[in-house]
Design a protein around this nucleic acid. Sequence first.
DNA 1: TGAAATGTTGGGGCG
DNA 2: ACGCCCCAACATTTC
Length: 485
Amino acid sequence: MHMTTIVWFRQDLRLADNHALSAAAATGAVIAVYLFAPGEEGGWEPGGASRWWLHRSLTSLRQSLRERGAELCIRASDDSLATLLALVRECAATRVVWNRRYEPASRARDARIKSALRARGIIAESYGGALLHEPWAARTRSGGPFQVFTAFWRHLSTLGDPEEPRPAPAQLRAPATLPVSQQLESLGLLPAHDWPKGLAAAWTPGESAALARLEEFSCRNLEDYALERDRPALRGTSRLSPHLHFGEIGPRQVWHAIRRSAQRQGRHRSWRDSRFLLELGWREFAHHLLYHFPHTPELPLRAGFERFPWQLDSTAFAAWRRGATGYPIVDAGMRELWQTGWMHNRVRMIAGSFLVKDLLLPWGAGARWFWDTLVDADLASNTLGWQWVAGCGADAAPFFRIFNPLTQGVRFDPAGAYVRRWVPELAALPDDWLHRPWAAPAGVLRAAGVRLGETYPHPLVEHAAARKSALEAFAAMNARVEESR
DNA sequence: TGAAATGTTGGGGCG
DNA sequence: ACGCCCCAACATTTC
């Protein structure tokens, strides 16, 4: 059998463990295509940091395709079906294949495209690879989706290990006719200003960097991860999230790399219960929830929260975004985000809790800011994270679980290395006052060169009072819900 | 994957 | 010796 197949790359910018690509390579010539269609993302077109990453990742993908004898065809259009049909005609292709995405807009579009292709006699196939298990594979006893993480994760373990990852095809056969590609630069993914300098210093997008990252991380002891993952000053986390989001590496590869490494180290059972795989489980859970509750990027899963009395204070929101709230651990996180396109998970929770519960700003505003600034911005994970912290999601933290930014700072950044790195104007403060400069004696501030309100802001709100207001707002929401029943 | 408020216990100082 | 108070440490409840 020999045919010409279009491989439609999307969030699977890799050659290894790519079932769509393998299927195409096994049966004939391959036309690798990337379609940039931000208008088809249902209002969630890639943000600035994602666009920067995408540019670099496509550069990398194009290079590794070339090394195997294939070219990457890039087209920009908000009508992917029309572009695919044009490519089919241009190259006399008979088949189009891709790996699935699970965002609501993508699912609707892909379903429409699949049936339109088939209606024209073109073979259209989709494959799984972005998740360990398809989101519809897990069902509660009563047939519905899971809404509690532990139950979901326990159920996944009954489905068994995911398939072993497949190697990248060694060689790709070129088609008789190569389609014309747009210049990558014509997509306009790189911003004009020098924001990407910080991103480039922190990250290397692309499949080979992703594999190197996984190799490095999986050599580490899984117990060290459990101990260090909550300490933002350490490099305790895997930092695989952007690579996973863009599919430069797939979760099956991660799973089996962890398994192999643990078994090499003589741990033949414990790895399954490791904290790290649990975090991979949260990623699965996020996709499960988005698949079954497609409205959650915009609306709270717990509908009562639509009546929450948010305070729309744009000055406070701007201070939060800039990292000028006056709470060092929050500001450190927001500045790490702006400068590197990433924020440590523990600090995401602290900064998120501060936005929602201390400033009473709607979680969706935080979600949009993260969407624009995170290199790992992912609709499923971002939505789950924000609904978790706001207390309005499935298996979320109860609303009254309010983080104290001072306590959290002292507990998780005890030596202050994280705050000093990202809030250098406080660096000279002694440990005792670093997380609460507002309480430091005047002499200590003077000695450290800190002038509150000038070199570093006064706290935007007083936490104890803000906490009280948040609980009152929550009570007001519950009263409104009660009243309307 | 929280924190604050409230309750309980037990040891030591002291009249 | 005994009861009383204070307070730290820990546990439980509440938001």
